[in-house]
Amino acid sequence: MRTIRFGFLLALATVPACGSAVMKHEAMAPASEAGVLADFHAGDVARRAGSPAQRGGADGGDAPVADVRKRVYVGEFTVLAAQRDTAIARFMTEAERVGGYVESRTDGVVVVRVPAERFQAIVAMVPALGRVLSESVRTQDVTSEWIDLDVRIRNAEVARERLLALLERATEMKDILAIEEQLRRVTTEIEQMKGQFKALEAQIAYSRITIDFQGQAPPPVRRATGSRFEWVNAIGIEPALRRF
């Protein structure tokens, strides 16, 4: 009978995201476990509802899930620069100046990450690097994904706590082995989800800007004698440098 009860609790403890399943098992649970299950279920439902007040109840008063929208900004450009290496160096320097970093550079394709609050400033300076041949700026709202991951992690952590509690109470080797197996599985899931969450947070905090720099060596400057109009021949870089 004890083994059956542990097996039953084990099954419940490892399905934190399945609210309807918990409801069914709770109805069938022996009276002695009803309190534990009720707490477990209440916490799970509250977290799934996602309201800050409800979330605080079962988890010890954690911060609200998301007070603001979570967005990922991505910019992609193709820039024609007369001096490609100089333009690339300027871009990377500017990204680092605002607290960003160079994620990769392959030939003329440079990918940088910049703090999200500086994304617009860096995008605005792209035309200064050369002639912009193509431009794509996208915003992805990842609020629901962020909340979902956060809730799943918290639920899994609660499940792990329940399993640990069950483990302390278990006396038979069969139960202990089964609980430990479930603990390993839940722990692995938590680590994976935390990794995903960390990656998502990084995407939100640091926007990605990719520029494909295309170099074009400017042809030699010809003598300014081509125009029929003298005033046009009189203007330009060469007169401004030599007759200034």
Binding site: A82, P127, G130, R131, P220, R222, G226, S227, G236
Partner: peptide, 11 residues
Amino acid sequence: HFTTERGYTLI
């Protein structure tokens, strides 16, 4: 004039 005669790159 600037792009064809003088070889400037229009930015």
